[in-house]
């Protein structure tokens, strides 16, 4: 039995989500997993304050180390993200990001579907530069500690995966709710509505990790290859692309998550995704 690229990707996404959030038994008690897996970062966005989380969030870790009194930048997390990005590019987003799977499931809710307004996709680079890199390193308190600004003011994954389960199980935390939680809840609400209307709204507009992996799409070994001699310019790949790009015009686009839907849609198999120049198309797998 042949398994389509889409189903294979979904199986990998679910497996990655399950591995990243395997301590589901911690949710009713609102306890965090405290074992040695937390030394390692998740390849995708997954809040480490989620009771089920096994791994550390790379963006949270990057800010935590960068904002500490001892360090101003995290070589450990930067090296980890760089290595993954060089090998896989944004395929990490497409295959193993837990929050990416949540967004795709939200997009399945019936509603009018929209394409993203292209200039909005540049917001994530501003978020990366200002909230993840500059603010934790430069805006410090009297002890020299910087705030993890992205986690604090923006991250809807933290609100959804960490905030809501912990608020439901910890009355002492609920008693502290204030304007900041309202801001984050509003951002979460916008993200959820955005994801229902537009596939992977958070990835396209806000995700600083996606911004890093996206920049590395230009050099990543796992890539999209287009055989222009075979392409008949039918635009089916562009029409089906969940990230609103044209794979023929920009196979290395920073938005491409290497999901492979374009390869399946191509009637002449001119598009392939893989590590080599010409990998097998889905019909040959």
């Amino acid at each position: 039995m042949k398994i389509s690229q889409d189903i294979r990707r979904r199986i990998i996404q679910i497996a990655a989500f399950g591995f990243s959030n395997s301590y589901i038994g911690n949710i009713p008690g609102g306890r965090l997993y405290k074992g040695s897996w937390k030394n390692f970062c998740n390849p995708g966005i997954n809040c480490y304050s989620c009771p089920a989380a096994r791994l550390s969030c790379p963006i949270g870790a990057m800010q935590a180390v960068g904002g500490s009194a001892k360090f101003s930048v995290s070589f450990y997390v930067l090296g980890f993200v760089l290595a993954l990005g060089v090998v896989f590019g944004r395929a990490v987003c497409g295959f193993v990001c837990p929050f990416g799977l949540i967004q795709e499931l939200l997009h399945k809710i019936p509603s009018p579907k929209k394409r993203i307004y292209k200039p909005l996709t540049y917001i994530k680079y501003v978020v990366l530069a200002v909230f993840v890199i500059l603010m934790p390193a430069l805006v410090t308190d009297k002890f020299g500690l910087g705030a993890p600004a992205f986690c604090e003011y923006i991250c809807p994954a933290g609100t959804l995966e960490g905030g809501i389960p912990l608020m439901l199980t910890h009355p002492e935390l609920r008693a502290q709710l204030g304007a900041l939680f309202s801001l984050k809840a509003a951002i979460l609400a916008v993200t959820i509505i955005g994801c229902i209307l537009c596939c992977r709204f958070f990835c396209k507009v806000m995700c600083p990790l996606g911004a890093i992996y996206g920049l590395l799409n230009k050099v990543s070994l796992y890539r999209v290859h287009v055989d222009r001699k075979v392409c008949v310019s039918c635009s089916k790949c562009r029409d089906i692309c969940p990230m609103d790009i044209d794979p023929v015009a920009k196979p290395d686009s920073a938005e491409c998550i290497r999901c492979g839907r374009c390869t399946a849609a191509c009637p002449v198999k001119a598009i392939t995704v893989g590590f080599k120049g010409k990998e097998k198309g889905p019909s040959e797998i």
Partner: peptide, 15 residues
């Protein structure tokens, strides 16, 4: 530093 942050509730993350 990563481990220490990850095993405690991150108040910033949860709002």
């Amino acid at each position: 530093a990563v481990f220490t942050k990850a095993v405690h509730i991150c108040l910033e993350c949860i709002g």
